[in-house]
Amino acid sequence: MTVNLTDRMKAWIEAMGCHLCVATPEGVPFVVLGRYAKATASDEVAFALAQDEAKVIAPVLSENSRVAFGVSRQGGIRAAYQFKGTGELLRSGSVFDTVAAQAKEEKGIDAESVLLVRLTELYCTKPGYEAGQRLDGMTPEELDAWERQRWKDVPRKRD
């Protein structure tokens, strides 16, 4: 399915960072923080990872590229979404260079790698009858309207 991140989703992801979840092929989950996040396309998010952060998930990603993430901090409740896709750890190239430089400038993160997640699934996680509702496949206009009926708040970017 096609994921079309709204401007509000991008704002929450980039302002708060995300909790990144991966799992071994046998189903053992691991979590690290994606403290610096950048929406690089309507269906792509890049996370700058320090060496110790990458070290936890790199062995897992080498065997299983599936990634699920949710927005950190207040975003866990205010941006009630789960994002899923496939992840690739980049250690060179234009995306790595750009995101790593921005992460260093904005958050002082020495990025050893950049996790680029190409999104394939999007779910609502608002508690209640809409929990688990699948939102990918909506057109950008449909998804934007769906979200605007519920929430409009956009966070300030954290230091």
């Binding site: 991966v22 799992a23 599936r66 699920a68 899923k84």
Partner: peptide, 18 residues
């Protein structure tokens, strides 16, 4: 705290929910 509960299917499809 608000927490994240992270699970996985038996074949390694991760899931994260607050």
């Amino acid at each position: 705290s608000l927490i994240y509960l992270c699970t996985s299917s038996r074949d390694g499809n991760p899931n994260i929910a607050a």
